[in-house]
């Protein structure tokens, strides 16, 4: 990696000042050090944000819970209350990477992590996402790539937390130039849909402060299918969350990861499920709606039936049947 300057920030305003336009925030460093080692980013200054006060806490509220951006994935995994209140979040955290990574990986860094496309990650390949003029994946090794995209890059969002946060209708609070912006997960990734260069909607200097999760859905699940039994990225991940009242779904949300450059969610399917009594036929219908318009490439067609199965399993597990 290239040499860089280093600073530790003790307040959000000094963090912003120190990072300037050409610096990068350093949280757990799992993603950033990988990018630095491959010369994919060369920030002038690394600003360690782990000493920012108040951002490493999980706080219970009456209407919503707050998870600070510096909370580690292990903190979520080890929190017995989270396991009860947001079981899907607990399941997602438990499956992320390895113990060593979960111990340092932060919520903010997990949401802001960059593309894992193997062409993108190769230091000598200059693809569309690096301002080159070709997407190497589209007509080549694309087995891990997207079924949906809003631009010509087909690298999917892989953050497991983004998938479950989408199903839980969580809000990310972003500090931009001293103002707090409140973004849905869809807004956090909107730019990755519309712009090939973007991994998310964050601009230089934007700082994720925390995530708020409403207590509106007492049931939630997260499932992922991977090639390896453990310590592997999801080929497809699926999260679902809802309340069940008198046997009927209330405010259901289904979200998928690793099949689109944003957490994949279809509003019409959520509406379709609302008020329904879940059974396999309903779950199958919902899955078809969610996957409608999928554009499989040469090697990632398997993701369609895989996603369909995960959606059905997630919904039935939500109901308590699986």
């Amino acid at each position: 990696m290239k040499a860089f300057q280093y600073a530790t920030a003790h307040s959000t305003s000094s963090a912003r000042e120190l990072v300037g336009e050409k610096g990068a925030y350093l949280a757990g460093g799992n993603d950033l050090l990988g990018l630095l080692k491959e010369y994919l980013v060369s920030p002038e200054t690394l600003v360690n944000i782990k000493s920012l006060p108040g951002l490493n806490k999980i706080e219970r509220g009456e209407k919503f819970w707050t998870i600070g951006a510096l909370v580690t994935v292990a903190q979520i995994e080890n929190n017995a209350e989270i396991k009860k209140v947001f079981p899907g979040l607990h399941e997602a955290a438990t499956e992320i990477a390895s113990q060593q990574i979960r111990n340092v990986a932060t919520v903010g860094g997990n949401l802001a992590q960059h593309s894992r496309c193997w062409y993108f990650r190769h230091r000598d390949v200059k693809c569309l996402k690096k301002n080159g003029d070709l997407c190497y994946a589209r007509n080549s090794e694309n087995r891990y790539h997207s079924l949906f995209t809003g631009n010509d890059c087909i690298s999917p969002v892989v953050s497991s937390l983004a998938t479950i946060f989408t199903a839980l209708d969580a809000t990310a609070i972003i500090l931009r130039d001293g103002n707090e912006l409140r973004w849905s997960m869809a807004e956090l990734y909107a730019d990755a849909w519309s712009q090939r260069l973007a991994h998310n909607s964050l601009q230089p200097g934007d700082l994720i402060l925390r995530v708020e999760i409403p207590l509106a859905r007492s049931r939630s699940v997260f499932l992922q299918a991977s090639e390896k039994h453990a310590f592997d990225w999801a080929l497809v991940s699926c999260a679902a969350a809802a309340e069940i009242e008198n046997g009927k779904l209330k405010s259901p949300r289904v979200a998928l990861g690793s099949i689109s450059n944003v957490p994949h969610q279809v509003a019409a399917a959520n509406e379709f499920l609302n008020g329904k009594v879940l059974d396999d036929a309903i779950a199958t219908q919902a899955a078809a709606m969610i996957l409608q318009g999928a554009k499989p490439l040469e090697f990632n067609g398997y993701k369609v039936p895989l996603a369909e199965t995960l959606i059905r399993r997630a919904l039935l597990k939500l109901k308590g049947d699986a």
């Binding site: 040499a3 860089f4 300057q5 280093y6 600073a7 530790t8 920030a9 003790h10 000094s14 120190l18 200054t45 000493s51």
Partner: peptide, 8 residues
């Protein structure tokens, strides 16, 4: 501690 140090 908030000072910028390095790259040396």
């Amino acid at each position: 501690a908030e000072k910028i140090i390095g790259p040396d």
